[in-house]
Nucleic acid binder design. Structure first.
Length: 681
RNA sequence: GCCCGGAUGGCGAAACUGGCAGACGCACGGGACUUAAAAUCCCGGGCUCCGAAAGGAGCGUGACGGUUCGACUCCGUCUCCGGGCACCA
């Protein structure tokens, strides 16, 4: 080989640091590069990644998420689709307030600086977003529509106030997020126990849609089965019966009966006690009559709270206390003792159960511990030997159950429920584990809830034409005390739109899950200042063809989003009943077996990866290192292989771009095998 | 505790319906080419033991048990890891 036939080695070397700066300039400056088209005959494709919280800098989990979406978006473009691939910022939330205190930087300034930084990082990585549709939830242009939706929900009876508990640190005199409670104590005052305080709060009636949310899970074939299962379980529909057990002796102010919910009314002849949640309203009355109970009940509540915050509720042992009172089983007039037990939940069912130890695991454990009678009332069917108690199966026949003896369980449930209805002491009932969505937050950095309190007119919504209710900028953010909004007269003082009198503005702000429940609609028409979006435009793009995000959002974000979509459909704003046709949940990026986090000090910064290996290597590695739906345990060894692969691709292209310099030659079709010929198209 | 996942070589994994476990790739080792390196090409490899070699034997998919002619796959019990549990987002 002579010298001039030799390949030009220098030109063949793949050096991302030589190539990428040129393109980075273009990615940085031209925001129209990846614009979706508006008038086109092409079929549409909406690919969406979950929008990030602007915490300061991208982490590898973001890179993984966006690399998946970016690859798909580019693939669909190349296949001739009109692709919508937008990005935005879930930019309200607690960290901005914490940062404000720590760095004396206003939340807005801190947040916007983080956004600028992370946006530059995204551009440096070459992600193909339509930046003209960027959505920033902390700006009034966006959050005014949160307020507008809130008013619409209120009009439709879907927003209401009720008392609800919050974590309260007496030292800070402030409400704490669950995250700010550590082992039952305030994260700043490690010796101050957190208490539960009741506040009036705003709720959205997601439970109105429980059945539809459940039914939707059967239809969405494009969602991972595990997410559908998790959502189904979260909604937790149970069909059963409510039965009233009369209080033996004088009736207290609560009334004469304890209403229990059960899915197994067929086992009611085996009920040997009634168990109340510690928060059950009747408990307070019983404590008055029997002051010895008070300390026990208070201890139970504290223990429950503590275990819950520590994240190991399993460590609390089931225990309870006999109240000294009895209730009467309406089926057989038997007197059964009333207990208060730490494992009964006030916000599920009626907050009271009938305890049937022979046929329920938890009741069995409890009865054994306290020596409560265990009386079998169901005999397993189709077995030669009766199984050990507790027998929880439904395939059996009733025994020890008076007139219902001999019935199979399913039939007994029907007949016994009908009997209760005839006699007026019970009825069929459906309960859900799903609770209404508490959206009130006693925080500054969120969307102000557009409501007023007038001494004369009561609760009055802010008129639509007065939106947005602007979050004031110059406030002092402190660790202790109530929200700064309660100390800002310019915000607080308002005029009642009904009577013109003095009114006080609501100081609660909205849960940030509100922001992320409908942001993907706003991308379709992001600059609309007359409506959240134009319905026709949304009708073109929706549903989202592919939604991509972390599995940690499998329940809350996705169920709230689905709820919001259904309400919007009922308002006539959208035609679709579900936001996303297909969902992909990528696995977490972990390092050394743990989630990457600042506190563990095992964070790998994408910037460093890009500097060392180039954006393409960093992106390709995060796609290649593990199947996308699995966890990715970050190891640096793999990225070298990716870089070598890219070098080979690069060389191939360079050589064919300069065939006269290459020792390679143009392929001759006749010499190629069928696979290689296929590649030529 | 409850709900949802996961565990297979040095690493990422594959085996889709119960039929040769470890495809494919990464990293690595040996060789060819080169003055040398990079690149490229060829070869190698689950573990242990026997054998100079060709080759052979045993063990092996988190643990224990079961079903089956046959189990990574099905059933039961359990361990460990990750996610969620409604005010982190």
């Amino acid at each position: 080989m002579t010298d001039d036939q030799k390949p030009a080695v220098r030109d063949e070397r793949y050096d991302p640091q030589q190539i990428e700066p040129k393109w980075y300039k273009r990615w940085l400056n031209d925001e129209t590069l990846y614009e979706a088209e508006s008038n086109t005959a092409k079929p549409k494709y909406y690919v969406l990644e979950m929008l990030p919280y602007p915490s300061g800098a991208l982490h590898m989990g973001h890179v993984r998420n966006y690399a998946i979406g970016d690859a798909l978006a580019r693939y669909m473009w190349m296949n001739g689709y009109n692709v919508l691939h937008p990005m935005g910022w879930d930019s309200f939330g607690l960290p901005a307030e914490n940062a404000a205190i720590k760095n004396s930087t206003p939340p807005r300034q801190w947040t916007l600086a983080n956004i600028a930084n992370m946006k530059a990082q995204m551009k440096r990585l070459g992600f193909a977003y339509d930046w003209k549709r960027e959505v920033t939830t902390c700006l009034p242009e966006y959050y005014r529509w949160n307020q507008w939706f809130f008013l619409k929900f209120y009009e439709r009876g879907l927003a209401y106030r009720k008392k609800s508990k919050v974590n309260w640190c007496p030292e800070c005199a402030t409400v704490l997020a669950n995250e700010q409670v550590a082992g039952g104590f305030c994260w700043r005052h490690e010796t101050t126990p957190v208490i539960q305080k009741e506040l009036e709060q705003w709720f959205l009636r997601i439970t109105n849609y429980a059945d539809e949310l459940l039914a939707g899970m059967e239809q969405l074939a494009g969602w991972p089965e595990k997410v559908r299962v998790m959502q189904r379980n979260w909604i937790g529909r149970s069909q059963g019966a409510e039965v009233d057990f009369k209080l033996d002796g004088a009736a207290g102010p609560y009334g004469a009966a304890i209403r229990v919910f059960t899915t197994r009314v067929d086992t009611i002849y085996g009920a040997t006690s009634v168990q109340l949640a510690p928060e059950h309203p009747l408990v307070a009355d019983l404590v008055v009559a029997n002051p010895g109970l008070g300390a026990e009940v208070a201890a139970m509540l504290a223990e429950q709270k503590k275990a819950r915050d520590a994240g190991d509720l399993g460590d609390i042992e089931k225990h309870g206390v006999f109240t000294g009172r009895y209730a009467i089983n309406p089926y057989n007039a038997e007197k059964v003792p009333i207990w208060v037990a730490n494992y009964i939940l006030m916000d599920y069912g009626t907050g009271a159960i009938m305890s049937v130890p022979a046929h329920d695991e938890r009741d069995f454990e409890f009865a054994q511990k306290y020596g409560i009678t265990i009386r079998p009332v169901i005999e397993a069917a189709g077995v030669s030997e009766q199984p050990a108690l507790p027998f929880t199966g439904i395939n059996g026949r009733l025994i020890n159950s008076g007139p219902f003896n001999g019935l199979v369980c399913e039939e007994a449930i029907r007949k016994m429920t009908a009997h209760a209805e005839q006699q007026g002491f019970g009825k069929t009932a459906v309960t859900y584990r799903l609770k209404d969505w508490g959206v009130s937050r006693q925080r500054y950095w969120g969307t102000p809830i557009p409501m007023l309190y007038c001494a004369r007119c009561g609760i009055v919504p802010v008129p639509e034409n007065e939106l947005p209710v602007i979050l004031p900028e110059n406030v002092e953010i402190t660790l202790a005390g109530a929200s700064p909004l309660t100390r800002t007269p310019a915000f607080l003082d308002a005029k009642c739109p009904k009577c013109g009198g003095v009114a006080r503005r609501e100081t609660d702000t909205m849960d940030t899950f509100v922001d992320s429940s409908w942001y993907f609609y706003r991308y379709c028409d992001a600059r609309n200042d007359r409506a959240p979006f134009d319905p026709a435009t949304v009708a073109y793009w929706f549903p989202i063809d592919q939604y991509i995000g972390g599995v940690e959002h499998a329940i809350l974000h996705l169920i709230y989003s689905r709820f919001w979509t259904k309400v919007m459909r009922d308002m006539g704003l959208v035609k679709n009943s579900e936001p996303a046709e297909r969902l992909f949940t990528q696995g977490m990026v972990i390092k050394d077996g743990a989630k990457m986090s600042k506190s563990l000090g095992n964070v790998v910064a994408p910037d460093e990866m890009v500097a060392r290996f180039g954006a393409d290597s960093a992106r390709m590695y995060s796609l290649f290192a593990a199947p996308p739906d699995r966890e990715l345990d970050w190891q640096e060894t793999g990225i070298e292989g990716v870089q070598r692969f890219l070098s080979r691709v690069y060389r191939l292209v360079v050589r064919h771009a300069k065939p006269e310099q290459a020792e390679w030659r143009q392929p001759v079709p006749a010499e190629l095998g069928p696979v290689a010929r296929g590649l030529q198209r």
